[in-house]
Nucleic acid binder design. Structure first.
Length: 422
RNA sequence: GGAGAGGUGGCCGAGCGGUCUAAGGCGCACGCCUGGAAAGCGUGUAUACCUCAAAAGGGUAUCGCGGGUUCGAAUCCCGCCUUCUCCGCCA
């Protein structure tokens, strides 16, 4: 949510962001509706003021045991008039809120122009593509050959689902525990959030498009399965006001994620890369605005440290305007080098600044009993199991068609060093 | 899933159609008192939105949420959410 003040006083600033994102938005319509709403509200407030005044008079007369016919008649008139005004105001406000909520976040100045992922800019790179003297296999080939998946899932559940078997299932658990240990050691609080949210709340956590593209609703309820634990984590702080000493709040959240991935035709969706269900360890931070940069960096470093320990070669890119999610102000993706030589996203670090906090109404007091201000929220993948496992499989396969388990994960795999054929 | 009892300000807690501009207490802030403190005394103590160039000021709303009855609702009626207690079912 963008401050209404900016919408009213500095529409140029918003147009700039919209242009950078390449998104259309009826900004003028929103401004008009807002104007009308203010006018109607003012009128309704005045009527209520009148009503309150006369009400007092009636109370006074009645108290003295007098009749107040004249006043009551007046009140009845005001009532009719007010009812009309109120209905109009309410309608306008609904429209206004709906539009206002769908206005994307202002972009950070660092975000480059551009429409598609082609325009994302590389920031850094780590690790080298391993030179191999054998023909590399895709993760899907490896998974099939090593008896790590059962594709019956596509029949019994649908495409985009797999049964993960044996050492692959174990690898997923190992990755999660490894990441949780790492982050809790750094003082992050471990949370397992609810895996569903009420629709009403969910709409505050993310933008409307996501509902069509990604969200699974739960039949006969008002609930949706979460697409990422970022959403219940933001919701956990709804309507809270923190003391400044309480910030930052740092969390590591564990949850499965459910995504329809509708409208992703043409995107890479082979094997386990784009599943409708996967597990993810998420980092989430609530902080004061002035510390945004510091914690964005911290989250980024945490993530990179993990991939480095797993010996996954990667690069970091900053997403261009068109590719940055509507709720975020700036996003860095970590892209892992895959067997085919392409870099593909495996994690994503974002700051929403106060956009999410405004929607969820999360504030802090700058001074005790002093001025209140919205907090900033940041989120970064710790590790998404499916994509990270995929990167491990493709990068750490050997000439025998086995998978070498990264050293960092071996303790979490009961000391196992390789995933071999059974 | 069934039955019952609740949800009031930062917290506790009263109020059950007009004086609620929400009693009282706790907490907090400031002041007096004190060598200093405690106690005591006094004063103040919410949020959001609208208005205003801004501040001051003014207005409106808010007693879980949403409707309704009424000239007028914290108070009456209906629906929902939620907490607690008991029963049933269950990993």
């Amino acid at each position: 949510m963008i401050p209404i003040k900016i919408i009213r006083e500095d529409p140029e600033k918003i147009m700039e962001t919209l242009k950078k994102r390449g998104k259309e938005f009826p900004l003028e319509e929103l401004r008009e509706i807002d104007k009308k709403w203010r006018k109607r509200k003012k009128e309704a407030d005045k009527l209520r003021h009148k009503r309150n005044n006369i009400g007092e008079k009636i109370a006074e007369k009645k108290k003295k045991g007098k009749q107040a016919e004249e006043e009551i008649e007046k009140m009845q008139e005001i009532k009719k008039e007010l009812e009309e005004k109120e209905e109009e105001t309410k309608k306008l406000n609904h429209k206004r809120e709906k539009l206002w909520m769908s206005l994307p976040n202002l972009l950070d100045s660092e975000v480059p122009k551009g429409e598609t992922e082609e325009d994302n800019k590389e920031i850094s790179k780590w690790g080298e593509k391993l030179e191999r003297n054998f023909k590399t296999k895709t993760h899907l080939e490896l998974a099939r050959e090593l008896n790590l998946i059962d594709e019956k899932a596509s029949e019994v559940t649908g495409e985009g689902f797999y049964y993960l078997k044996n050492d692959l299932a174990m690898l997923g658990i190992a990755l999660q525990k490894f990441t949780i240990d790492k982050l809790t050691e750094k003082g992050y609080e471990l949370i397992e959030p609810p895996f569903m949210l009420r629709e009403k709340i969910y709409k505050k956590a993310t933008n409307v498009d996501k509902f069509k593209e990604d969200m699974y609703g739960v039949k006969d309820t008002d609930k949706y399965l979460i697409g990422t634990s970022e959403h219940p984590m933001a919701a956990m702080h709804k309507d809270e006001v923190y003391q400044k000493e309480e910030l930052p709040k740092k969390y590591v959240a564990i949850s499965p994620c459910f995504r329809k991935e509708a409208g992703t035709h043409g995107k890479y969706r082979k094997g386990l890369y784009r599943m409708h269900q996967f597990n993810k360890i998420e980092q989430f931070i609530v902080c004061k605005p002035e510390n945004e940069e510091k914690y964005f960096k911290e989250l980024q470093e945490n993530a990179e440290e993990i991939y480095q320990e797993l010996k996954i070669p990667y690069r970091v890119v900053i997403l261009c305007g068109g590719d940055t999610p509507k709720t975020q102000a700036k996003t860095y993706d970590v892209e892992a080098l895959m067997a085919d030589g392409e870099y593909r996203e495996i994690g994503s670090n974002s700051t929403s600044k106060d956009y999410q906090a405004r929607r969820m109404n999360i504030k802090y007091e700058k001074e005790k009993y002093g001025e209140r201000e919205y907090v900033y929220t940041l989120n970064n993948t710790g590790v998404a199991t499916s994509r990270t496992m995929l990167a491990i499989m493709e990068n750490h396969q050997n000439e025998k068609g086995e998978i070498n388990i990264p050293k960092a994960l071996q303790p979490y795999m009961n000391g196992k060093k390789k995933i071999k054929k059974k």
